[in-house]
Design a protein around this nucleic acid. Structure first.
Length: 435
DNA sequence: TCTGGGGTCCTAGGACCC
DNA sequence: TCTGGGGTCCTAGGACCC
């Protein structure tokens, strides 16, 4: 069985060192950076529509507030404990994330931005004896330049760096930095790590492994390759090899282009009319089209879905529709028309809709759009018109210029009732300091 | 676990081909 | 229509991530 080649262990990189830098309770820390009186008190940040908890301060975690907890179920408890509550301020979080990532790029060009709040750094160039000090410098610099606390885990593979990071987050002694590359303590660290905390082990594999008596990362590291390959696929086998210190996952510094781009939202209230649905789908298509142009991509096809609320006892409906576009495009006008057509194919009267979304697929670079004999690659002036819209909206605020199809009142809009200010991106919302 | 939103990768199975 | 062997492409669904 070609197990070795499937997991692609890279022997030339045997001595690689990588770090995982992860912002602590990222959304909460962004709020605190501009509201220092939130230090030391329980704080939570909510998902869209202020419906459930997506970020918690350590004090909120200590109160037993669970990730994903529906707000309506814990509303009383939040009040009794004077928990500070915020809506998700995506504009602020995205800008703070950019600042953190720019800071990390000062330490090495080999940075993989893995998510809004974490990045892998290739630190192979740092002499082994200096790794601890280097990690502390990263932590201190990010804190000083952005106001955000981060934790740094250092190890031979990404999977091990993740584990180090987890341990450092919980340990008082680590003070936010843990380096276990070539450490005699690594085995003990693995033994202390429950198997479901290993990166790549989700709910389903956790059950599978525990049924086989594998309960911690050390036992998983020493599991039988053939069994793992058979029951958990090549992905699972890679995880096991990474635990052994054999790098199977590269630090991928060149961001490869997105394969899908989507925008979807649950509504602020249940929606019934086709007209409201058309407005919302047009709004999502328009938003996703902006993302498309930002990435310099064009969509070859579009998918629209609509659904009712499956947690309510009432008639349920879910449907989606895919349409291939005559030629790839990122012109909002074309995309609005196709999105509307997809919607009308699947919309049914008599349901109370809860959520809708638009996804662009078969993405191609915008400078490589192929037309056909009868359909020119792009409308004349398309690019210029879209550029004007994007620039005006970028400078003067989202939807300053928009198409009428998006609607004016938008009564279905998602609720964000407890939004903080966009401290870093809007002149009207700067922090105010009293003398 | 699943009352948010936005993604990726892998696999099994069907359609179709020689 | 089935008998056999060998292959590609596409899609749906599963599993996982933050």
């Amino acid at each position: 069985m070609p197990v070795q080649s499937e997991t692609r262990p890279d022997h030339s990189a045997r001595s690689r060192v990588c770090a995982l830098v992860d912002c602590n309770n990222f959304y909460v820390s962004c709020e605190r950076a501009f509201a220092p009186w939130l230090e030391g008190v329980p704080v939570v940040v909510l998902s869209n529509n202020d419906s459930c908890v997506v970020a918690r301060s350590n004090e909120a975690k200590a109160l037993g507030i669970k990730m994903g907890a529906p707000v309506h179920q814990i509303a009383r408890m939040l009040k009794e404990n004077s928990v500070k509550v915020f809506s998700s301020n995506y504009t602020l979080y995205a800008d703070m994330s950019r600042r953190v990532m720019e800071t990390l790029c000062r330490f090495t060009p080999d940075v993989e931005i893995y998510s809004i709040d974490e990045a892998f750094l290739d630190l192979t160039h740092v002499p082994c004896g200096d790794l601890d000090a280097y990690g502390r410098r990263i932590r201190d610099t990010v804190k000083r330049w952005t106001g955000l606390p981060v934790t740094v885990g250092v190890a031979r593979t990404k999977t091990l760096a993740k584990i180090c990071n987890h341990i450092a987050k919980r340990s008082q002694r680590a003070r936010g930095v843990l380096n276990l590359a070539d450490s005699p303590h690594l085995d003990h660290a693995l033994e202390m790590t429950p198997v479901d905390e290993v990166w790549g082990i989700g709910w389903s594999h956790d059950r599978l492994l525990r049924a086989r008596g594998i309960e911690n990362a050390l036992q998983l590291r020493d599991a039988d390759d053939r069994w793992v390959r058979k029951r958990m696929g090549v992905v699972g086998l890679r995880t096991v090899h990474e635990l052994r210190g054999i790098p199977c996952l590269d630090v991928e510094t060149g961001a490869d282009p997105a394969k899908t781009i989507s925008t979807s939202r649950s509504f602020g209230r249940l929606v019934e009319s086709l007209r409201d649905m058309e407005e919302s789908v047009a709004t999502f298509a328009s938003k996703a089209a902006e993302k498309l142009r930002k990435e310099r991509l064009a969509a070859g096809a579009i998918m629209v879905f609509i659904m009712t609320n499956r947690f309510r006892e009432e008639p349920q409906y879910f449907n989606s529709s895919i349409m291939r576009l005559p030629a790839p495009t990122n012109d909002t006008r074309d995309l609005l028309r196709s999105a509307g057509e997809c919607l009308r194919r699947i919309y049914r009267d008599g349901f109370r809709y809860y959520k809708a979304g638009v996804m662009f697929i078969e993405l191609v670079p915008e400078d490589r759009i192929q037309g056909s004999l009868f359909i020119p690659a792009q409308r004349p002036d398309s690019r210029r018109l879209m550029q004007v819209m994007d620039r005006v909206n970028g400078a003067m605020g989202a939807d300053t210029l928009k198409f009428a199809a998006l609607g004016i009142e938008q009564g279905w809009r998602t609720r964000f009732g407890k939004l903080s200010r966009r401290y870093t991106t809007s002149w009207d919302e700067l922090m105010t300091v009293r003398a």
